[in-house]
């Protein structure tokens, strides 16, 4: 498959490049643009990024491989990144992970046959107070997961409904009763 950026995307890339004194710092943002467009940064996409920015292919490859959020191969339509790290671990992150695995019939790291879901076990996503939680395809955070909530989210995704952003407000100290 041949991967190309559109004129608009190339313009957007020029705007990004202008933020820095050289082209290389645009590597991460442009890999993002590519992944958002193509759904992954497989080697041919990495080459496109390298070509577009005039950078060595090995450089772009090394960067893509260093950062875990870039999908080095095609994933399911929805990637479920379940946090199992520290606070999520002790608040039931693994229960949620295993529940999802059983529900979708795959292990983490795998994609369902219909290419709909990929499950990943991930490190801390910075939502420790809202554990357990997951992120969907590098996008929305779904917090305070329970089995019921997982069922609802999966059902919604199957119908093309992405969960909405959940604001997690600052906590206020409750006045002491005594």
């Amino acid at each position: 498959m041949k991967y190309e950026f559109t004129e608009d995307e190339l313009k957007q890339i020029e705007v990004i490049k202008a933020r820095y004194p050289e082209a290389r710092p645009a590597t991460l943002p442009v890999l993002w643009i590519a992944q958002n467009k193509f759904g992954h940064v497989e080697p041919d996409v990495q080459k496109l990024v390298a070509r577009t920015l005039g950078l060595p292919e090995a450089h772009v490859h090394g960067v893509a491989e260093f950062y875990t959020q870039y999908y080095k191969k095609e994933q399911g339509k929805f990637v479920l990144d379940v946090c199992t790290c520290l606070s999520c671990q002790i608040c039931g992150g693994y229960d949620i992970l295993h529940y999802l695995e059983d529900k979708l019939g795959i292990k983490h790291g795998e994609t369902t046959k219909d290419k709909m879901f990929t499950i990943q076990q991930v490190e801390c996503l910075g939502a420790c107070g809202y554990a357990p939680m997951m992120q969907i395809t590098n996008g929305v955070y779904v917090n305070h997961l329970t089995r019921e909530k997982v069922d609802k989210v999966i059902h919604g995704l199957k119908n093309g409904e992405m969960p909405e952003f959940e604001p997690m407000e600052m906590r206020k100290v409750k006045p002491q009763e005594n």
């Binding site: 420790c128 107070g129 809202y130 407000e169 906590r171 206020k172």
Partner: peptide, 15 residues
Amino acid sequence: YGISGHVNQPGVYEL
């Protein structure tokens, strides 16, 4: 303060 884990009211508090 970010408080997480086994508490009743986890979250971020400014104190």
